[in-house]
Design a protein around this nucleic acid. Structure first.
Lengths: 349, 349
DNA sequence: ATGAAAGCGCTAACAG
DNA sequence: CTGTTAGCGCTTTCAT
């Protein structure tokens, strides 16, 4: 007759079950959970006891349906294998937790098509905001985001035009400044070990950095760098061999700029294996998107990015917007930093 | 009169809107989306056109409410700053994408209390499954998981008793085997640079590895290792200094075992700074939870774990269960591997 | 301070 | 092959 006291295995309790157990209406239970101040102390206690007894966990799907707010924020990154992006996600996660929001995560594998698919699927959960990586999206993605009518943040690049808000830095400047740094160190016969043109099509941040490098070289009036592409820019050993072969094949070089830290670290290791002195015979620098530059010997000179900060700010931009604080700055530049380590030196001229 | 053609800015369309636009019932639209085979070709095309025209994105909150299935899997990891866990999440994400499931992610910061909070909040979204890290959970977490009635996977450790399914390896054995390896290399005056007893309380996987180390030493009948704890086991520089000080303070040591790779890498760097020859004057090994052992020179001997594989299998266990394939093995041991690098050597006795 | 009714968007179950 | 009805669990609105 009475399973009121839950003597046998209860089904997942809902509001109504809690209400019955406590002898009140569903609405009262809802109030206890959401606006405890509006309920009499005695009632509140009764209801709370019922909630505890039944192990009630509110169904947020129903909640989302009724209020038009899910408490969920979507974030899309290219990959988590790259530590700057996992740092970014950690930053987002931390910031969201403060506000009791949840993180729905997707990995686009550097593919705008996959990103589009993910956006479509994830938007179905009616997130309160969405954070994307980069500025390169399909036309359909743009449409989807527009009709979603939610705050959108694009991370990791500052462009002229953004869907909504943005947090990142000037990738062109990052490439430009590391090349300038090398030039000001006295290196004048530069090689560039890049990812690949195909990769740069889908990763226009890398493309912008490349352009920055070429621009700096052009400004300095030294010869354009020889360029070598690597096959798999996330494979240290493979990239290192390609970089070292490149150095061997171009005897005039005094320094190489590597498009990322994986390549840079690989190059240092492999060049040293082959007996090259770094930086005396060949200097090496990277562009920081892996946070491993400090681990090798000699340390890799690099451009340091602030992944976790980018994530934190991206989430904050969303949250501020949701809290009605129309962000003063919808576009935030977190900058970058040239970190000079022993893989480069001031070259006596 | 008619905004049928969406001449002005339409509100977010729902099933009914699509149905009206296409001149069919809501149910037919639903069928086109979910069981296209059951709808006449002509109707299907009409409806599809309406879906496209209105940019309709199904509301999954309603879906979740009605069917009792959300397509969402929850994963909880301690942190993403540690690359093994970001690899794990990547593995989960990849596996889920195959099946069109979405990933709701939380970071517990190694705190069972925070984990409990997250479990409670995330369970509200009615995930179809949940993946946790480790076997250490509050009593309340256990209750919550039990009443959720969904597949549960515990990752990164294989224990005698699991909530439901598990994928990981024997942490005791990992500690035991790396210590045995060192002993078999001929080192006999070992130091142990551990995290801290407080840390091990909440990270019982580390505690198990410690026990494994002590057990191996006891078996070998050599003296118990001197132990030094580090303050912040995720800070390379800080850990390195502490490890090096420890070596200096214990002149008899011929090798140190570091509780993780961060400490190991830091120790190598700092000891070299101070002029120590590795492994001749002091050998160093780590326990792999950061995947950075190969980057330093000399390479750090370590126990390699398979983070991405663990994540992949964890997700597959969930998915298999959801697809009704009662997994043959609810407990999967993915093992680990001792990787011997130049930070240790066969010691001539 | 509390309750009753209605409906958010969708699909299972049943017509036809 | 297509449509109607009802209801998933919750909160908004309006009464009391």
């Amino acid at each position: 007759m009475s399973d009121k006291k839950g003597s046998y295995r209860q089904e997942r309790a809902n509001l109504m079950a809690v209400a019955k157990y406590a002898g009140v209406s569903a609405m009262t239970v809802s109030r206890v959970l959401n606006q405890p101040g509006k309920v009499a102390e005695a009632t509140r206690k009764k209801v709370q006891a019922a909630v505890d007894a039944l192990g009630y966990v509110p169904n947020l799907a129903a909640n989302t349906l009724r209020r038009e707010r899910s408490g969920v924020i979507v974030a899309l990154v290219p990959t988590l294998e790259n530590s700057v992006f996992s740092d970014t996600v950690q930053g987002i996660s931390n910031a969201l937790e403060q506000e009791g929001c949840q993180l729905l995560l997707g990995c686009s594998s550097y593919s705008p098509e996959r990103e589009e698919k993910l956006v479509r699927a994830l938007l179905g959960h009616r997130p309160d905001g969405i954070i994307l990586t980069g500025t390169l999206h399909t036309a359909e993605t743009h449409k989807l985001l527009e009709s979603a009518r939610i705050p959108v943040v694009e991370m990791w690049d500052i462009a002229a035009d953004h869907i909504d808000m943005a947090v990142g830095f000037d990738n062109f400047a990052a490439g430009h400044d590391i090349a300038s740094h090398m030039i000001s160190c006295g290196y004048e016969s530069l090689g560039y070990v890049a990812t690949s043109p195909e990769h740069e099509i889908h990763e226009n941040r890398a493309a912008k950095r490349s352009k920055g490098i070429y621009a700096a070289v052009a400004e300095a009036g030294i010869g354009m760098p020889a360029r070598q592409n690597v096959r798999n820019p996330l494979d240290i050993a493979d990239s290192g061999v390609i970089a070292a072969d490149f150095v061997v094949a171009n005897p005039g070089l005094d320094a190489i700029i590597c498009a990322n830290e994986i390549i840079g670290v690989g190059a240092i290791a492999e060049l040293q294996n082959r007996g090259w002195q770094i930086p005396d015979q060949i200097a090496v620098c990277g562009i920081g998107d892996a946070n491993i530059a400090a681990l090798v010997t000699p340390g890799l000179t690099t451009v340091q990015f602030y992944g976790q900060d980018i994530g934190k700010r991206a989430a904050e931009l969303i949250l501020d917007r949701l809290n009605g604080q129309q962000a003063a700055e919808g576009k935030q530049d977190v900058g970058f930093r040239i970190v000079s380590r022993a893989s480069t030196a001031e070259k006596p001229s």
